[in-house]
């Protein structure tokens, strides 16, 4: 019983972290119809940003996360201007491979600048644990989870309550109609992409005290996040959150039950099965897969 609860707690905490990445990825897809292969590279940049600020100045990682927000935002804008805006309406090969190229570029730029060394941020709270009812809950994990969930809630409120959020949703549903209604679609794209990748970077900052930091860490996250957004239905924010928590639970329990490698294998098989049998995911709208996601 204790073990089950522990697994559930771990799984939910992990899922919460995935959620922030998944929301961004699914929004970019839903609104821009772009699969952002470089999404987790922004997370990696956030991790390194926090690492270097902490390392060079000793500033607390959470404070450093706040410091890097404007940097991430500016970099997101730059990528949008140079790459993403140019893929809108371009042939499929451009839409798919431009972000893949960006991913390769960022990963290897980080590799070149900072080598493949594995780094970590250690603070006095790194090993701190809460023990409610005998459960062991990592404090930094809980903080990251809380911030990630708050950010997710904030994004959701933004999308559903503000004029701008509604404009974004309008564009996601029907690009042509949104243009006719006078929505500046290009600007919506810019905001969506930039906010989403900034969120990914913030997520990186939050988990900097928890995870090893190295240039290729994005690879191990992005694929899991793809699984999540497809399960949740590409383009569906609530689906992404639910699927993220689900995958968190699966990952946490599978480690105990069948070993990590085979767990990974089985969830890729599930991923493949979902894509084939129900490509719109469990919460997505039907039809996107047939329209080529455009």
């Amino acid at each position: 019983m204790q073990l089950t609860l522990q697994i559930i707690a771990n799984g939910l905490l992990l899922g919460g972290l995935y959620a922030l990445l998944a929301i961004g990825l699914t929004l970019i897809f839903g609104v821009l119809r772009v699969v952002n292969f470089a999404h987790a590279e922004f997370m990696m940049l956030g991790m390194f940003g926090v690492y270097w600020i902490w390392r060079l100045t000793g500033i607390d990682p959470y404070l450093a996360t706040i410091i890097i927000i404007p940097l991430l935002f500016a970099f997101g804008l730059l990528c949008d201007r140079l790459i993403i805006q140019r893929t809108i309406g371009a042939p499929e090969v451009t839409v798919v491979f431009a972000t893949l190229g960006l991913s390769i570029l960022l990963q290897n730029a980080a590799l070149t600048a900072w080598t493949a060394d594995i780094r970590s941020v250690t603070t006095h709270y790194t090993g701190m644990v809460l023990t409610p009812g005998g459960l062991r809950i990592s404090v930094p994990m809980l903080i990251s989870f809380a911030v990630a969930m708050l950010a997710a809630l904030g994004l959701w409120l933004f999308l559903s309550r503000t004029f701008y959020g509604k404009a974004i949703q309008a564009v996601a549903q029907n690009r042509e109609a949104a243009v006719l209604m006078g929505i500046n679609v290009r600007r919506v794209y810019m905001w969506t992409f930039t906010v989403a990748v900034t969120a990914a970077g913030v997520m990186g900052g939050l988990i900097a005290p928890l995870y090893s930091i190295y240039p290729r860490i994005g690879m191990s996250f992005i694929v899991t996040v793809f699984v999540i957004v497809v399960l949740g239905g590409l383009g569906s924010v609530s689906g992404a959150v639910l699927a993220a928590l689900l995958i968190g639970l699966v990952e946490a329990s599978a480690g105990y039950l069948i070993g990590t490698a085979w767990a990974e294998l089985s969830y890729f098989l599930i991923f493949l099965a979902v894509l084939i049998v129900r490509p719109q995911g469990f919460f997505g709208r039907r039809g996107a897969e047939v329209f080529g996601g455009r």
């Binding site: 190229g101 390769i104 290897n108």
Partner: peptide, 17 residues
């Protein structure tokens, strides 16, 4: 290796755009 793959990344972006 790192710079070589950076070149690939740039090449891919430039070509598809």
């Amino acid at each position: 290796g790192g710079p070589a793959l950076m070149v690939y990344g740039v090449l891919l972006i430039v070509i598809v755009l």
